[in-house]
């Protein structure tokens, strides 16, 4: 993979810890200690009740493909080398949706509703981004 040339996340104060967790192989949701809301992506406050009393909750890593596309016209040279590649919106079993890539998946297998599981792909100097592969276990 020519991942070194692909864009690394532009880290902010909100996400320093999120991306540090990712580098260690954990996808973290932001949980509101006041109202229980779960958020992807992390903010300084809860988008439901504005509480700033938040904690991290580790996502199970299980989800389903909500929508996908094979990108033929890629934004940069590094992506172009891999086109067409799948970009997807994955719905996590905890509820929130996120954008990601689907890896290790034959094109004809990729479908809306496909159960997927988390893995990490190296990105940037020592970081990692969350991507998904088809689930190895049949999701209930």
């Amino acid at each position: 993979m020519s991942d070194a040339a692909k864009p690394a996340p532009r880290v902010t104060k909100d996400s320093e810890e999120f991306w540090a967790f990712a580098a260690d192989g954990a996808l973290m949701l932001r949980a509101c200690n006041a109202c229980g809301a779960l958020m992807y992506y992390p903010r300084i406050l809860c988008t439901r009740c504005m509480s700033t009393d938040l904690s991290w909750r580790r996502a199970s890593g299980r989800g389903r493909v909500y929508a996908f596309t094979f990108v033929h016209r890629a934004p940069t040279e590094a992506f172009r080398a891999e086109a067409p590649y799948p970009v997807a919106i994955v719905e996590l079993e905890e509820g929130p949706r996120m954008m990601s890539n689907i890896v290790a998946c034959a094109p004809e297998v990729l479908a809306i509703g496909l159960p997927v599981e988390l893995q990490f792909a190296p990105r940037g100097e020592s970081g990692a981004i969350p991507v998904f592969r088809p689930s190895s276990e049949e999701a209930s």
Partner: peptide, 25 residues
Amino acid sequence: NAGHPQYERPFGPMIPAMYALAANR
């Protein structure tokens, strides 16, 4: 063209790809 600089851009979408997600769904 590239979406959110942390939560979208690293995955390589373009504006057409993001509308394509809506079309797919």
